[in-house]
Amino acid sequence: MDVLLDNLDLYGPGFLNTVELFLISAVGSLVLGTILAMLRVAPVPVMRAMGTAYVTIVRNTPLTLVFFFFALAFPALGIVTADTFGGSAASLFYTAALFALTLYTAAFVCEVVRAGINTVPVGQAEASRALGLTFGQMLGSVVLPQATRAVVPPMMSTMIALLKNTTIAAGFSVFQAGSISANLAERGENQLIGLLWVAGFFVVLVIPMTLLQRSLEKRWSIAR
């Protein structure tokens, strides 16, 4: 308990940063992932190929490598410099972490959305067209409501994974929950106890999300 109470100045900002990283990259990856899913089901072959290529490459690359690239190798290309993001060093690495998390998670979001759209039988869309619904009406009243049920539970799993993945930033100069232990070591505190507290907080954050996901999954799987 002492390790936690004596170092609240590490745990507080650490977990706040984790949640902040999570929220920003969650929004980013949801937007990018949905756009990618649109590309993957688009009627134009070139667009489909682009979407597929992105998803195939990113899904098969370790996130640590994506971090490695954006935090350490990417600046060598000279597209961004230390002064691009407000000039402080922290903002440079923070932005790199956001990019890594967003671009990586987007590939998984894309697959979830695409799988969700595919669960809606083609007959549903054909029937609504036959009834004379416009594209918007068809999407809004027929396809999306059905697809949502298949999308939300796995999407929550993806987001839980994203929350946990933010800890990889510990190796790339971004202060968050994963880097608490290194800072504790500098202060000469017991790392094991410190790390168990970190683990405990993650359990507290993740378990409610898992429970909600399960209950949604159960409720909607019966309705289908």
Binding site: L72, P75, A76, A82, S88, A89, A90, F93, F172, S173
Partner: peptide, 24 residues
């Protein structure tokens, strides 16, 4: 220096690389 200007990496060679790239 200010806390937001401290960069912590895993090895000194990575730091030197960042220095040469102008990131630190």
């Amino acid at each position: 220096t200010e806390p937001e200007n401290i960069v912590e990496l895993q090895t000194y060679s990575l730091c030197v690389e960042q220095l040469e790239q102008g990131a630190v």
